[in-house]
Write a protein that binds this DNA or RNA. Sequence first.
RNA 1: GGAGAGAUGGCCGAGUAGGUCGAAGGCGCUCGCCUGCUAAGCGAGUAUACUGGGAAACCGGUAUCAAGGGUUCGAAUCCCUUUCUCUCCGCCA
Length: 422
Amino acid sequence: MLDIRYLRENPVEAEARLKSRGEGVDLSRFQELDTERRGLLQEAETLKALRNRVSDEISKVKDKSQVQDRIAEMRTVSQKVKEMDERLRQLDEELQSVLLTIPNLPDPATPLGRSEEENRQVRTWGAPATFSFQPKSHWDLGEALGILDFERAAKLAGARFVLYRGLGARLERALINFMVDLHTGSHGYTEVMPPLMVNRETMTGTGQLPKFEEDLFRLVDPDFLLIPTAEVPVTNIHRGEILRRDELPLCYTAYTPCFRREAGSYGKDTRGLIRQHQFNKVELVKFTRPSESAAELEKLLADAEKVLQLLQLPYRVMELCTGDIGFSAARTFDIEVWLPAQGCYREISSCSTFGDFQARRANIRYREEEGAKPEFVHTLNGSGLAVGRTLVAILENYQQEDGTIIIPEVLRPYIGGLEFIA
RNA sequence: GGAGAGAUGGCCGAGUAGGUCGAAGGCGCUCGCCUGCUAAGCGAGUAUACUGGGAAACCGGUAUCAAGGGUUCGAAUCCCUUUCUCUCCGCCA
């Protein structure tokens, strides 16, 4: 959510900055509602002040028969106040729903651009390996090795699900443990295991609701929503809290399954593990002081990159342009891993700063100094990494001509010392 | 799922025959005083949001005692609903 005062005072600038995202945002509705609300609010509050004053006077009179006319008068005032409050409630609600659907302002550092074509390559790491044979896709490799079973998963649930089996399941689990251990052991994050289903307030706090409900899985009876990423429950850990300055930055890592409807991506990535309704991810989340968030984003990105470096998987880092960053994000770096069978880089992590956008929605604050006014923190998060896609990268990059897979060295302690999957 | 108890400021904790309660008291914290260090002591201050005025310092108004609604001139206090917490019983990985 954007600062209502900023929108009120700088509507032209705000519209221009939002326009750089590609979708035009019309603030005229906001301005109408805001003006009406403030006018009515003043009227209502004046009446309330009168009522409070007169009620006070009434309380001081012992013989109430002397103030019957005043009581009657206040009865009318109260009735009027009630009507105004009802209208105010409506206005507030509408204003909120307008505000909640306005995306974040792109950070000034975010490059201008219309679509992903104009994303900026920041760096590459490692070189795509050359194969003396035609590299196979991970789904062919996985099925041949008996470690990925898409057909039976479809029987159990439907399309876009997978059944990991044997060393496939073991490898997935090894990757999860490797990543979480790295981030807690070497990068200073605190591990958390949050609920996988959450309520609507939580989904609103990080920006999934009200705009993107069609992307989410929902439970019918208690109205729970399945998390599309651990960002949601972990960022909401401190919703409504005032944090102490000396505990910032707060850094959390969480392994969770993620659930996504993937509505609107019907033709895309229909084969293999790339786009699933349920997938595993290790997430990194930070709460920082505003002045430190830019530096913390760099560190978070480096922490995610470290996973690929240790696994010796070639990748590149892309900075998303204004037309490609997500609804809540102000600035985003994607890490894309090299997939030889597809002959391209594919996203495996997305690291963003949200500025105070989520903090304002979720009301997460801190005090810069003892006794100072609370300010909003900045929130950041990134995948560290998407586990299924990491497994894809390992299968495809570490494959050998006979279809067996070499296990990256750093992973071997997590998989009983095994050197390859055959 | 059944029976009962509860939810007050950063924390603890008063306050239920409705008005003098944004809310006693304590702790914590901030500033000052005092004591040749430390501890103790003394004094003052210490919620948030919205909103009006002001360049600002600041001044005014409204709201907030889990959330929402009701009764009333007036609600932390009375009534209803919801959520959450705790205790006991049942069920259960």
